[in-house]
């Protein structure tokens, strides 16, 4: 893995094996439960509902019975500097309030709700639709008592701010605390994984430090089946996908004729 940027820090990233992904949605519910994402009465309005990781259904477009569906789980891509002079992720460049930043030491793009002024520039700038605006306060009506399951690790959001996947940053802090309690400074690979990684029942998601050759993600992103979404935008996402299916890979970007490289002879 060549270094995209000057520093030699950690670069947390994710690899999602689309051949394994079954579209069950456990990553989405695990994420919502982990990150205190509120559920509103109408979640079918996808422009308003909040899903830090979103499953997209894609189809090969063939006729019955040759139709196939596949699924794209899409967390925040945690884009990086472009390596040609340090352009930041598109959301970071447009943020007028310094509410979203790329942490060069972890590669994680933060989102600070109390700093956010709700202008939604970042939402418009994000090519992956990974950012969500809170049109309302978190929905926890008193008479239900649902606030009892809220985790203190992530603060519930107020209306008027943007939120998005944080790569479960609080889990990194939790892992660090544990390491510190044991007198260590560094954490092990398995100590910090996101809630979706942990929850995936088919183990389709792998999480780790892309810069660390000992981590599994480092090895996986070098597979010929590895690719990223909208690679030509050069936003350097830290979320990689694996698929052996050409029709799935082809949907990852807008290829010009002849530009797409097939992996297999068939399909």
């Amino acid at each position: 893995m060549k270094k995209d940027h000057g520093h030699v820090g950690k670069k947390y990233g994710m690899v999602i094996d689309l051949d394994k992904c079954t579209g069950c949605g456990t990553c989405m519910t695990a994420c919502a439960a982990e990150n205190n994402v509120s559920v509103r009465k109408d979640e079918s309005d996808k422009e308003r509902s909040i899903t830090w990781i979103q499953l997209y259904q894609i189809s090969n477009g063939k006729k019955f019975p040759d139709t196939r569906y596949s699924y794209f789980p899409r967390p925040c891509m945690h884009c990086d500097e472009d390596g040609r002079g340090g352009h930041h992720p598109s959301c970071v460049s447009v943020c007028v309030a310094s509410a979203t930043k790329l942490d060069p030491h972890t590669g994680i793009v933060s989102q600070i709700y109390t700093r956010c002024i709700g202008c939604r520039y970042c939402q418009a700038a994000c090519p992956f639709d990974a950012r969500y605006f809170n049109w309302w306060d978190a929905y926890f009506p008193k008479e239900k008592g649902l606030e009892r399951y809220l985790s203190p690790d992530v603060s519930p959001r107020m209306r008027g701010v943007i939120e998005k996947c944080s790569f479960c940053h609080h889990r990194l802090m939790r892992a660090k605390n544990q390491a510190y309690a044991e007198g260590r400074r560094e954490i092990e690979e398995h100590e910090y994984i996101t809630a979706c990684t942990e929850a995936c029942p088919v183990q389709a998601i792998t999480f780790g430090d892309l810069n660390n050759p000992k981590h599994k993600v480092h090895e996986l992103i070098q597979l010929p089946t590895a690719f990223r979404l909208l690679e030509r935008l050069n936003t350097k996402p830290k979320v990689y996908y694996l698929s052996t299916k050409d029709w799935v890979r082809r949907l990852a970007d807008n290829y010009r004729p002849g530009e797409f490289k097939r992996l297999s002879k068939g399909s």
Binding site: T26, M28, T29, E34, V39, Y149, L150, E198, P201, V202
Partner: peptide, 26 residues
């Protein structure tokens, strides 16, 4: 109770659970 997670030390399911089980606290 703030979160339900799969158990990796259980014979039936090595760590993973379904999306419904994940929302049990609701």
């Amino acid at each position: 109770a703030v979160k339900i997670e799969g158990r990796s030390d259980y014979p039936v399911n090595p760590g993973g659970i379904c999306p419904l089980g994940m929302g049990g606290l609701q």
